[in-house]
Amino acid sequence: MLVDAPYYIPGSLAEPAAGNPQEPRNDRPAYGRQAAALALRGGSLAVFIGVLVFFSVTAPFFLTVGNIGNVLGQSAIAGVLAIGLTIVVIGGGSNVVTGGIDLSLAANMGLSAAVYATLVQAGQGDAVAIMAALGTGLVIGAVNAAAVTLAGIVPLLATLAVMNVVAGLELVLTQNTVVPASSELLAALSASGPLGIPVLAYVLLGFTLLVAAAVQFTPLGLRLYAVGEFPQAARAAGLPVKAFVAGSFIASGLCGGIAGILSVSFLSGSTTGAGDMLLPVVVTALLGSVFSRRLVPTITGTLLSTLFVGFLINGFQLLNISSTLVSGVQGLLILLVVSATTLLRRQENI
């Protein structure tokens, strides 16, 4: 795998169970694989659309502007977090154990939300509170970045330890209670925008657009992909690999801070239990790669997978199906997707 990754790999966790990307790839254009990839990508889009059609037919209110807006709004927090995670995955390589992953994101959101709510409750203005919440996110991101690039801890472990510390700090700050908060910004965020769609929905779309533009359409973004997928080649080409990896963690920390503010507006305060968001967000971000052309993590793919999960939950609710099935469906989806990509890659390597 990443033989000379910017951080030390313990043993060879890097070794995937099957396939060996280090082996030279055959040069002839793999039409079969392209067709299969197209089938997978088209297949996942088809499943997405199929689910939407199914819900529109069976649940009368599903296909209304109001409902779709609601789903977008409810997905905003998870979406921003998943996008942050996607940036780390792009910059660190897609091997989840040795590559980029940020387990501290959900805890980060919790602490940033707590900081914001506490400051607002203490009578501080929006400006101070926003700066503090985003600053909290940035600091957490910077600690992750330092742990990964300077101390050389594997991201999975570094962010796991940071997650514990951050979750503890949130408990210290809030004493494990709900901190209600109201401010002008919060009122503006939780209001309805044009077309009766929640402002949060617009925030999610705008945020995605901004990050997608930066990651998918700028030289900076291209270099981030290069650093993640081929660190040696990137280094040989003169890219500051460590700086990019560090930057991806700081960006993801900032996303945690933003998600924190959004969650305060969505829940009218900071609540406990932010850590429960972690695994769903990880799954969402990893699932996003099926919605991309080359089956790599992309920002738009992550948005689609966030919305997919959001629509599933919403549709289940409208149909009165137990929403407990959602986690099962998510699990099955990720297994299906990953099996399909693994089998594709294996074919390619033969």
């Binding site: 169970a17 091997n95 699990g331 099955l332 990953v338």
Partner: peptide
């Protein structure tokens, strides 16, 4: 199937 252990067991968890 040959899925990486992290993803496979994450799926199992869900």
């Amino acid at each position: 199937i040959g899925i990486s252990p992290f993803l496979a067991t994450l799926g199992t968890l869900f």
